[in-house]
Design a protein around this nucleic acid. Sequence first.
DNA 1: CTGAAAGCGCTTACAG
DNA 2: CTGAAAGCGCTTACAG
Lengths: 345, 345
Amino acid sequence: MSGARSSRPTQADIARLAGVSQPTVSLVLGGNKAGMTLSEATRRKVLKAAESLGYVPDPIARRLSRRQNNLLGLYTFTATFPTDVQHSYYPFLVGVEEESAVQGYDLLLFTSSSSTESGTNEVLNRVRLADGCLFLGRHVPEAAMSRFLDDGYPVVYIGRHDELGERLPYVGADYVSASGAVVRRLAEAGHRHLLYLREHDDAPASVDREAGVVAAATDAGVRAEVVRTDGGDVDTGRLRAWLDAGVTAIVAEETDTDIAVSAVECAARSAGLRCPDDFSLALLGDRVGRSPGLPALSGFAIPRREMGRAAVRILTGLVAGDESVPVRQVLPCPPLVGETVGPPP
Amino acid sequence: MSGARSSRPTQADIARLAGVSQPTVSLVLGGNKAGMTLSEATRRKVLKAAESLGYVPDPIARRLSRRQNNLLGLYTFTATFPTDVQHSYYPFLVGVEEESAVQGYDLLLFTSSSSTESGTNEVLNRVRLADGCLFLGRHVPEAAMSRFLDDGYPVVYIGRHDELGERLPYVGADYVSASGAVVRRLAEAGHRHLLYLREHDDAPASVDREAGVVAAATDAGVRAEVVRTDGGDVDTGRLRAWLDAGVTAIVAEETDTDIAVSAVECAARSAGLRCPDDFSLALLGDRVGRSPGLPALSGFAIPRREMGRAAVRILTGLVAGDESVPVRQVLPCPPLVGETVGPPP
DNA sequence: CTGAAAGCGCTTACAG
DNA sequence: CTGAAAGCGCTTACAG
């Protein structure tokens, strides 16, 4: 640990060996971007000395003085690679990583914060190590985000968020349109009474989907019943009751764990009911990577990878002070046809 | 970019506000590990000022002076989340992330390097930002690694590597034993003539597997033919020729892309041959996450997640100067039974 | 056209 | 028990 730095040659060592000043070494080795005039002899001496000592610049020192890092943060508020929801986070990461590489930034994953009791300060503390930071999560810690925005520290959310008015930059998915399209497809298949299962809390991801469902249902003259659930209260009896009451299609919000749709599938299996024969089932989203053995659900694709890429582009734009980047973007979600939607029984 | 850092309060600002010296602020805020005695009044004044200014320590500056920043690097020599091999990298990442969180380190993904022409210097340059670095890849860039080791910079490879003698710390998988076990299972099923397909290059991952195969085959009195291939030259004709020559089982090295085993499966399908009816097929590894629709191959599991965790433990041990951690570990690979091995036809 | 000064924000010896 | 100095390794104004 001690040996790590102490044995490395510094610009000062080179300067001594070459008989010039340390700043001159910096100028020569830094490619002389300021356009200063160096004598060719000085250049050569310095380069030779650097070569012979095996000089490698210290990125930390460089960053401290240059005030920029080429580091982009990614903060997820839960483990970055949670085992149970890993597949829904992964595509975001792929996009983030790709575009970071393109833009010449490395990626800083804030993981240690999730293990400790991570209050607002904890967040603020570590995040600033990066030149700017991406955030991923259903909800926004408003105090921390406000602070970032006030300080002019560049942040971008993955997912639409208006908790802070119009201030917070984000890349969202157009859940409203995509959810509406799902309902329209059900209406076109002949359904007139559907059930919409959603989370209890009012994250924008839930609000947007419900808005899309309700608007499209109204528009198509379809009755849409909204039920809030955490999945635990969906069982065979309840499913049968819904169907007996005239429900012919169930639409479920997509979440990290897809707990609602799983509960429905499970209840249907126990009851010997099948989709789309006995009722139609649609997911407001996709079930990426978690489908081995499970039927392909009708729904829509969330462009996670592209969202990740777009978020990085916004963030690097902000870091570079580029005013021309649109900082609030919503990406379209292509429909997924699947095999769980058919005409009403 | 300008607003980001310049508007942030520093210890100097706090000192001014509290009417003390900047180093005193550092002492108070740093938790006073040196055990110096501070007057309670000073403490309170400083903490109050820090609070009111919303102070956040600059990790870069801290790293420069303290020579440590609670950052662990991960360098992959290709895109960190390459699309085609993503599933084989992902479990490593999960393990690395988990254990980093446990140990209180954040994770730095070196991505930008992969896009540019990443020479030795590039690696050396960026990596040192972290307190230590993990590396993932078939081969070792010897010059760069040598340099790290010489400098006492903590590095750990994921995967066994002896290219640098006994110097390089690593966490490997016991491919020798696991490969031997696969051959033994084939021998017990009655096979007496098998073909072993491996990569052209001599990465340790290939060398170990071949050693295990050859030793176990010799031991069991089984003939094992070694064929080096990149998959491109495996077609229906060649597969038939092998089987006609008496081969009853094919064993393929597992790689990022599993190109060899895929070629065999494809050739078999075209030829109307089935496993294990017409011949047995085994993989020296697993096919994590890429198996939707494909048959479960017999082989062994690579404990990627645990390897990631173990690598982090070694690395944090090195960073902390803990001499007691074994720096070269090989983890066992549990057998996977699968459905592609049976008795010879 | 060059070289010495100041500064980035912090920590850790080292004097009072 | 406290406060001012020196230093981490670099970059960027600013004098000669």
